[in-house]
């Protein structure tokens, strides 16, 4: 309930509510952006753009269309993909060794400060290859169910059930 009120205040241009939402989601959004742009500085730049865009376009969000977090995710993926396609990016691009969200988590030295760090590293450690692909496409790359099915050459329904199994393991690890 509290989240809904926050979002409403945010849409009414309440800076405090905006800050709370930023604190809640900025790490996640940064992580998703960085999985796409693979460059900390550029990801930081895109992150700011994403939250500024969310503030300016807050009217465009309605709960009917989906979760607020999902809305932010969409803005972030689109902004990151736009960035990757832009000319300036191609010049600045560095080849960092994070092809995958998996590597980002496994090589994350700052994770220990976060809650559930051990659980999540353990989860990633024994995550099946099938789950890695699915999670990468669905949550980080923003593929639709259909696109995912076509890319992995599995039936539409399998995307749903297999993904649920992958995420239920994650929930056990995070105890949510």
């Amino acid at each position: 309930m509290e989240l809904e009120i926050l979002i409403e205040q945010f849409q009414n241009k309440d800076a405090k509510a905006f800050e709370s939402l930023y604190e809640m989601y900025n790490e996640s959004i940064f992580g998703v952006i960085n999985t796409i742009v693979k460059n900390d500085d550029i990801a930081a730049e895109v992150l700011q753009d994403v939250f500024i865009k969310a503030w300016n376009k807050s009217d465009a969000y309605t709960a009917k269309k989906g979760r607020f977090f999902t809305w932010l995710l969409n803005i972030a993926r689109n902004a990151a993909i736009d960035k990757v396609r832009s000319k300036s990016f191609k010049n600045a691009q560095q080849n960092q060794d994070i092809d995958f969200f998996v590597h980002s988590i496994e090589s994350n030295d700052n994770l220990e400060q976060k809650i559930n760090a051990i659980g999540i590293k353990k989860y990633i450690g024994k995550l099946a290859e099938k789950c890695k692909q699915l999670i990468d496409l669905i949550y980080f790359k923003g593929f639709t169910q259909k696109e995912t099915a076509e890319t992995l050459e599995i039936p539409l329904g399998t995307v749903k059930t297999r993904n649920r199994n992958c995420i239920s393991e994650l929930r056990k690890a995070l105890e949510v």
Partner: peptide, 29 residues
């Protein structure tokens, strides 16, 4: 619950030592 799990998972990919303070966004706006 699912959302909490995904927020947790995606946040774990953020390997920065310090996050960008909200004030910098506030300044920009």
């Amino acid at each position: 619950s699912i959302e909490a799990a995904i927020v947790g998972l995606t946040a774990a990919t953020d390997h920065r030592k310090t996050t960008i303070p909200f004030s910098s966004i506030q300044e920009k706006l």
